[in-house]
Every structure is written in C-alpha cells, then in structure tokens.
Amino acid sequence: MSDDPVGTEERAPYVESPIIMTTVRIITPFVFTFGLFVMFHGADSSGGGFQGGVIVGTVVLMLGIGFGIETTRDWIGPTLPVVLVGIGVFAFLATGIGSVLLGGGFLEYDVYPIKKAFKYGIEFVELAIGLIVAGVVTGLFFVVAAGTRDTGGDAA
C-alpha cells in the first residue's frame, strides 16, 4: 500500500512519463467539466447520470495512469469512493421515498415545494446516479489494480 510507485514488480507497471503526466494535467479539468456537463445537461440533450458518472470516473483513471495508481489511491483515500456510492444510493432512495411521504407516487417530483420540481428533481436524481457510477468505476479501477493480494484488509 505504501510501497514506491516506480519499479514495483507485482503492481501494475508504472513508468513515469513527462508526456503522459503533462497531457493528463492539461486535459483532466476539461474531461471533469465535460463529465459534469453530460450529467447536468442530460435533461436537455444526450447524456445523463450513467454516462456523466463514467466520464467523471475516467478522470481518476487518467490520474492513476499518469501519476501512478498507488499515488492516486493515497491521494483520494480508500473510503471516498465507498462514501460517494453510499450517498448516491441514499439520495436517490430519499428522493423517491420522500415524494411518497409527501403524498405523491414514487419519484413524483411535483409534490416537492420548489419551482420546476420535475426538472430539478430529475437533475438531482441524475447527479445521484452519477455519484454511484463514478464511485463504482473508481473503486473497480483501484480494486482490479490491487488484485487479490491481501493488502491490509482484515482476513476472516
């Protein structure tokens, strides 16, 4: 977990390349913005939470390829993906059940007392889906990179 990112034999091989690092550093903000755009603009054009979430997750994948997976994982922290996924599922469920509690059907957004409840409700749900997908994509990347070796997990 804390071994050096360069030249480790059993990890995914990481070669420090200034070209890749510079490219990742330059395009990462644009890809992240594009992911958020796809997520939020899914209501009015192609896209949505699933697609936008994958693109946001790709940002982490690019950072991992550019700067080393171990370094990226240490920077993000092991619990953040799990927390994001949990918050996403909870937000989606709460939106649906909340509208039932307010007297409407499941995900019947217009019982919420806000303007354009349907539009903003859909945006909120897309954002929740995006959190789930981005978290799971990031987590899959880290888990597959770590492999099946027991790295600090409590063995049963």
Binding site: G42, S45, S46, K116, F118, I122
Partner: peptide
C-alpha cells in the same frame, strides 16, 4: 409533464 427536453431522460428518471 416533466419540463425536460430529452424524452429519453424524461422516461428514465420520471
């Protein structure tokens, strides 16, 4: 009914 222009999203999320 849903105030979103993308009918696919309207079906998916509403």
């Amino acid at each position: 009914e849903t105030q979103v222009k993308n009918a696919v999203t309207a079906v998916l999320a509403a």
